[in-house]
Simulated assay, not measured.
Amino acid sequence: MTSETVGFVGVGLMGHGMASNILKAGYPVTVIAHRNRAPVEDLVAKGATEAASMADIAACSIIHICAPGSPQVEAIVSELMPNMTPNAIIVDCSTSDPNSTMALAEGLEAAGFGMADAPLGGTPVQAEAGELATMVGAPDAVFARVKPVIAAWAGAIVHMGPSGAGHKMKLLNNFLAMGYAAMYSEALALSEKVGITTNQFDSVIRGSRMDCGFYQTFMGYAVEGNAEAHKFTLTNALKDMRYLEAMADGVALANPIGNAVKNSFALAHAAGGDGAEDYVPHLVDYVAKRNGVTRG
């Protein structure tokens, strides 16, 4: 039986499935409620313990955090640290600013704790199935300790290097994904504007060399109308592209394409893109509307 105990902050769309699979792997899991009690109640029914406060979470030896971004992660770590046990490890599964991550890791190490950044690749469905991918930034000793727990919820685990490396790679990954979304949205608006329907466009691209898994997910909304084909919000997409921009600025790299992608999401957000309800494939509607195109 493992000696590790797992705390989990953020059992939402992704965190619920992850925590569920950690339970299945035999680890004691402590969770805490935020706004939505349903995931917590489900996990408690499966054997998890509900924390009365963050101090209960801090008593665990490996603590997962799934939060919207760096400001929230920083606040959570600040609340946890006074009550953490010696050698405890924070695993940040959020998509965070690498500069923040490296600063947090340095502070935690100085206080006798560890940190791993383990951002996620995949969907809530894959989270429930234990088939996420993750790219991990952590010192070797920290990675060795957290890897068995991460293996409970991830099918693919890549150790990228020291603290911050996982979040750097995640931003590059999301740059490609959000870049696809921006290009697909603009291409479909232009397609409709010149008299080629979305279905005609799809009939040429699907199955061709330009097809890919992200394309199929994106077109699950554009063609099939599945509003939940890819449950990643416009707000989070914009946040990630801002983090990418900051990462590029930090090494004095010109990133005009990254800026263009960011601005596509910024325009959608400014036009009313709701972080709670509008997902990345919905960008197609905002780009169409901005160009006077009515989608059927």
Results as ranks from 00 to 15, higher is better:
V9A: 01
M169S: 07
G69I: 07
A55V: 07
Y221W: 08
M241D: 01
I90M: 08
A229M: 08
G12M: 03
T217E: 06
R209I: 15
T30Q: 02
G17P: 09
C212E: 05
A270Q: 03
T101H: 01
M247A: 15
E224H: 12
P148R: 00
H64E: 13
F214R: 04
S61R: 13
M219S: 03
V11R: 00
I76A: 09
T2Q: 09
A129F: 00
N83S: 15
I90Q: 04
F218H: 02
E106H: 09
E224K: 13
G275E: 04
T2K: 07
A252V: 11
M210I: 01
D42V: 15
A127K: 00
A271G: 06
S96Q: 05
S53A: 11
L176A: 09
C93Y: 02
V142I: 15
V77G: 01
T123K: 07
M1S: 13
R295C: 10
F8M: 12
I257T: 13
G220F: 10
I63A: 04
V9T: 04
F218T: 00
T5C: 08
G164Y: 01
E4R: 05
R290F: 11
S53R: 11
L132M: 11
T217D: 03
H269F: 13
F143M: 14
G114N: 13
E4K: 04
E277D: 13
S191V: 10
T5P: 12
K168N: 11
S20C: 06
G107V: 04
M247N: 03
G121L: 14
N226P: 00
F214N: 05
A276M: 11
P98W: 05
H34Q: 10
C93S: 14
V194Y: 14
V73K: 03
Y279A: 10
T294F: 01
G10K: 06
E79D: 12
F113I: 08
N255C: 14
S53E: 03
T217K: 15
D97N: 11
R145A: 00
F113H: 15
V44Q: 02
P162Q: 10
K170I: 01
V125E: 14
V280E: 11
A75W: 03
Y221E: 06
H167S: 14
